[in-house]
Amino acid sequence: MTSTNPTLSPAGGADAPPAGLRPNRHSSLRAAQTRRKWYEIIGLTLPAVIVYVMFVLVPMGFAVYYSLFRWRGIGPPTDYVGFDNYVLAFQDPIFLDALRNNAIIVVGSLVVQGPIALAVALLLNRRFRGRAVFRLLVFVPYVLAEVTAGIMWKLLLTDNGTVDALLRSLGLGSLVRAWLADLDVVIWTMLFVLTWKYVGFAIILLLAGLSNVPQELTEAAAIDGASWWQTQRHVMLPLLGPTIRIWMFLSMIGSLQAFEVIWVTSVPAVRSLGASATMATYMVDNGFFARLWGYGNAVAVILFVISFVAALLFQRFLLRRDIEGAVTGRVN
């Protein structure tokens, strides 16, 4: 409203209308303003809404529809099979392997990356010369493309490759495995590569959280005679709570969708046996490459529902306080 006042006042001041006409003109101007406001609101938000609805929401709706058909992707789907595709998925041992692998990645990422990231973040938050350079180096794996990182590790981990040679030269030759081919080992290799790739992200987030801790608090703790460890344990850690929970949330969603690193690093044959498959690789293998579109879409819906439920549960029980601002929007 305020913005249109200036255009109003000269008009009102110059030829002041008779008192009787005033409310009428005023209200029509007001209506024009309101109309203009709505034009602006709609004009500015519509492009974003259209793109968002069309490419984020609509496809998920179609996935549900396609998942009810046996369909090779040619012409419209006609062979309605109800929930058969879902039943088939849960009867396929490879898909169950994929589910188990996703569970390993979700839990493994949290349990391994969390403590490492916390330790490194607390370390890099201390003042020492060259800290900026160390920070930069630690983030390098995170900015590399998943594909680049995957191919790099694939080369390093090949039989008698660099990792094996390094282990042998350290006298740890007995640890050498067929990292990418041994069906019992490969998922742990994947977890290792994922940890290397994503622990930097956890560190960035935690450092961001640490930098929000007012310096007065650590100074106050120091004046009270707290050691560095006590300060970290009793001041920093509790204040990092929200950041840690947001990281856990993002890590969990990312782990449920794990695709690129596994797709590139692990051998297709191993993947097709289920040893390194995840829900997402299983979905692309079956839906896109084997052209089982109905079935692939059913897997997409399962993946989506699992992620969605996990996200909602996590929000409900752990994240509520932290993102209340973002979702309910306290905007003045």
Binding site: F55, V56, P59, A63, Y66, F259, V284, W293, N297
Partner: peptide
Amino acid sequence: LFPSGAAILPLYLM
């Protein structure tokens, strides 16, 4: 909350 990975097949079809 909408993972882009999950939507990839219907996205391709669209």
